[in-house]
Every structure is written in structure tokens, then in C-alpha cells.
Amino acid sequence: MTIRLEGIKKIYQIGTQEVAALNGINLNIKKGEFAALMGPSGSGKSTLMNILGCLDRPTVGSYKLDGKEVAHLSDDDLAKTRNKKIGFVFQNFNLLSRISALDNVALPLVYAGIGRKERMERAYHYLKAVGLDTRADHQPNELSGGQRQRVAIARALVNDPSIIMADEPTGNLDTKSTKEIMNIFIDLHEQGKTIILVTHEPEIATCASRQLLVRDGVITRDAGKGEKMDVV
């Protein structure tokens, strides 16, 4: 089991009031699963995504990633976990604008402490895998939205993570690019990667093998591929 969440709660203190963003999440995601996480805004979807991505800690509960408890690690240990186990793909790409596509892809390897030569080789390999080896020296602002997102996917893959977290990866893209990007995710799924895709578009979610609906801090539906879920 790649991901095992048990009784995850996230409670925010707003003034004197306690607000539960997540109210007892239990979730198992197997290796190689392609899960779409859906839910309206304010549902706790982003909070769950942050916890799954080791960017945030739950207030209570247990989160085992590859069998290791990560729910209450220190900031630095969370950073190391993110570096090793999680590849992020964001809606707005989040590439560093002043460095080349190749350097962007290699960035996680810098923090993994890998030497320059190996970094560049590995980065180039993944850039080639997303079909952008000819654009390695270009800066992000010289690339189209679809290309930028492919650079970001290469970056997410470069340290061979356990899970790929994609947060609305097609939210800023046109239809054609969306299709390209989703095909890449489908390919990755076929290669056996574990993918968690956050989206509010039902059509995108249908690409996934499993669809989860979050509402009011709990998972209200958990369905297999093909079933269309009513988000609202």
C-alpha cells in the first residue's frame, strides 16, 4: 500500500472558533493507482492534497507513506520526504522563470544532493520522455503553456517519486494541451506510476481509475473508472 490515511483531521483555529477542514479521512491508495480527487471549493480537497503532498501536517490521524509514518514529521523531514517520494505538478506550472527548462527539471536533484553531471543526464532523460529535449535550453517564458506543464511533469518524475501529485494540472491549458497532458498522465499510469490528480472537471477525472469525492471534510464517494460523478 503506497498511501494509508487513518482518521485524518485538520482543524483550524479561527478566532475562538474551531473549523474542521478535514473531519476524519480514511483512505488507502495502492501502488500504481490513478486516483482523481474531486470536490467543490471549501470541501477540504486542497487541505487533503497538501497533507498527501507532505506540505502540511494533520491535526490528528496517521499517514503512512510507503509504510512510513509521516503525519507528524518536522519541517525539514517533510521537505526530505517531498524530495524523495513526491513529484508535484501544479496548475500554474511553478517553474523558476530565470533558469532553463533543463535546470528546472534538475532542481529536485539539487536538493537530493546529486552531482551536477548525473543531474543533467537524468533531467535530460525525463525532458526527452515528455518530448521537450529540443527545448532544454529555453527559459519557461519561451515555452507554451502545454510545454511548460510538460517540463513540470518531467521535474515531478526526475527523482523517481512514489506518488505524483497533480493539482489541477490542466486548469490553465487549452483543450489541445489538456489532451496532451492527460495522455501523458495516462501513459504514466500505464507505466505503473501512482498518480493523485486533483480536479474539478468531471471529464478530466474520468481518465483516472478511481474517483474520490470530498465534501465537508470527508470522502463521500469512492468510485471506479467510467462512473461519472456529480460534483455539485
Binding site: 519541517d75 521537505a79 517531498r82 508535484f88 511553478n94 532542481l107 536538493y111 521535474r155
Partner: peptide
């Protein structure tokens, strides 16, 4: 934020 998400420590 990007650097931290990708694994940069304090």
C-alpha cells in the same frame, strides 16, 4: 515556495 515543495530544507 517552489524550492521548498521540491525538497529544499530550512
Amino acid at each position: 515556495g517552489i524550492r521548498k515543495a521540491l525538497g529544499a530544507t530550512f
